[in-house]
Amino acid sequence: MYLENLVFDAVDPQRLGRFWEAVVGGERLTDEPGGFETRLTVEGGPVLDLCFQRVAEPPSKLPRLHPDLYGGHRQQEEVDRLIGLGARPLDIGQGDVPWVVLADPEGNPCCVMEDRAAYVDTGPIAALPLDSADPDSDVGFWSWLTGWIEAPGAGLPSLRHPSRRGPLLELCPERRPKDSPKNRLHLDVRLEPEEDPDGIAVAIAQRGGRELPRDRDDLPWRIYADPSGNEFCVLPARS
Rank of each mutant, 00 (worst) to 15 (best):
D12W: 00
C172K: 01
D198I: 03
C233R: 03
L130Y: 01
D198F: 03
N230D: 10
R88S: 15
D179R: 12
G45A: 12
G123K: 09
V101C: 15
L16K: 01
Q53T: 06
G71K: 10
C172W: 13
C233K: 02
C233E: 06
P213D: 06
H66V: 06
A22Q: 15
D121Q: 14
L65R: 01
S143L: 03
A87V: 10
P105H: 13
G229L: 02
E21P: 05
N108E: 04
P236N: 11
E21T: 11
I204Y: 07
H73N: 07
Q75Y: 08
D188P: 04
L3R: 07
L69D: 00
L62D: 13
R81N: 05
I200Q: 09
L3D: 09
S132I: 12
D196H: 03
R238F: 07
P109F: 02
W142M: 03
P162F: 03
G34I: 01
G25R: 08
Y119M: 06
N230V: 02
W142P: 05
F232W: 04
A237I: 02
D9H: 08
C110L: 15
H66R: 13
R15Y: 05
M1E: 07
G26R: 12
N183K: 00
D68L: 02
D196S: 14
L219W: 09
G140A: 13
G86L: 14
E4H: 02
P193T: 06
K178I: 03
P59G: 11
V202G: 02
C110P: 03
D217E: 15
G166V: 09
R210E: 11
E21R: 15
G72I: 06
P167I: 13
A127R: 07
L6S: 10
G208Y: 06
